[in-house]
């Protein structure tokens, strides 16, 4: 009972503080914009911990954050091996191959009006499909190793990336292209000096969307068969053993890896497309 009362008190107190900050003049300041969501996150964790202790929820339903943290600290070597197998070998190599292939293919497609009109609707359609379903087929073709996971990632991210690349290459306006022509610039100088830089916001949009898809693809593909290492493998076997603290530790790793990956791409975007209105800082 005490735990539950404590949880309620923390919730009300933190919410009161947050709304005070949010509705005051402080809300414009940078530290407040960071402090409020962080306090909200910490509150959720504390309430979670207190409720699990107060109601004595069994481990097989919901482990407390402290239990998950202990497990995380104790099993870092296994978690690291899983991370390398799934993220570095599976997701990252598939991401590089898939995005690179889609980018080059996009430049090729862009040269032909006919191909653009045919491929864009088909690619848009493919991008909305549950491509994760190709995982069992690709696992059958490329074996249980990381290669099949990379293949799933390539198939999943190819079409979103292709659509974004082609849209981006169409972004340079007719006026700008005419200007390049008055300079006597041919296809390649126009591509490198005008159209690719103009396409960068779209290309980075594609890179950001696919960074999330890559990790999902690599994890789900492991549900269909994997060596005895990997995040998807660990999640499915630990769920089978009802070791939910391990599952949550693995999910923490996935969350950290996913947001760092996205953050890294967003950071590169800010350096490359500093001129774009969405990136300007006042």
């Amino acid at each position: 009972m005490i735990w539950l009362a404590f949880a309620a008190a923390i919730w009300v107190g933190a919410w009161w503080l947050n709304s005070r900050i949010a509705n005051s003049a402080l809300a414009r300041q940078r530290w407040a914009q960071l402090f409020v969501p962080v306090l909200f996150g910490v509150t959720i964790l504390v309430v979670w911990e207190c409720v699990v202790r107060g109601l004595e929820v069994p481990l097989v339903i919901l482990p407390a954050p402290s239990v998950i943290a202990v497990k995380f600290a104790a099993e870092t070597s296994i978690l690291w091996a899983d991370f390398v197998q799934t993220f570095v070998k599976g997701a990252l190599s598939g991401y590089v191959i898939g995005c690179g292939a889609a980018f080059l293919f996009g430049i090729l497609v862009d040269r032909s009006q006919f191909l653009q009109r045919g491929l864009l609707p088909v690619s848009n359609f493919m991008a909305a499909l549950p491509i994760v379903g190709t995982a069992p087929i690709l696992v059958m073709w490329y074996g249980f190793g990381w290669q099949s996971k990379a293949a799933v990632v390539v198939v999943m991210i190819f079409f979103p990336m292709l659509v974004n690349t082609v849209q981006g290459l169409a972004e340079a306006s007719a006026m700008q292209r005419d200007l390049m022509r008055t300079y006597g610039a041919g296809y390649w100088p126009t591509l490198f000096k005008l159209r690719l830089p103009a396409a960068m916001p779209f290309i980075f949009n594609g890179l950001k969307i696919t960074s999330t898809l890559a990790l999902i693809g690599a994890i789900v593909a492991e549900f269909f068969g994997s060596p005895i290492v990997g995040m998807g493998f660990r999640i499915s076997t630990s769920v089978g053993q009802l070791a939910l603290d391990m599952v949550w530790a693995e999910i923490t790793v996935a969350a950290i890896a996913g947001s760092l990956f996205y953050g890294a791409v967003a950071l590169i975007e800010r350096e490359v497309t500093f001129w774009h209105p969405s990136q300007r800082r006042n």
């Binding site: 409020v36 969501p37 990790l215 969350a255």
Partner: peptide, 23 residues
Amino acid sequence: NRAMDMSVMPWAIASQTIPILAI
């Protein structure tokens, strides 16, 4: 609600970068 905006919205955006399907 400004308080909700400031506290929930960053998490809603961040959660899109997480492979939720894993759970």
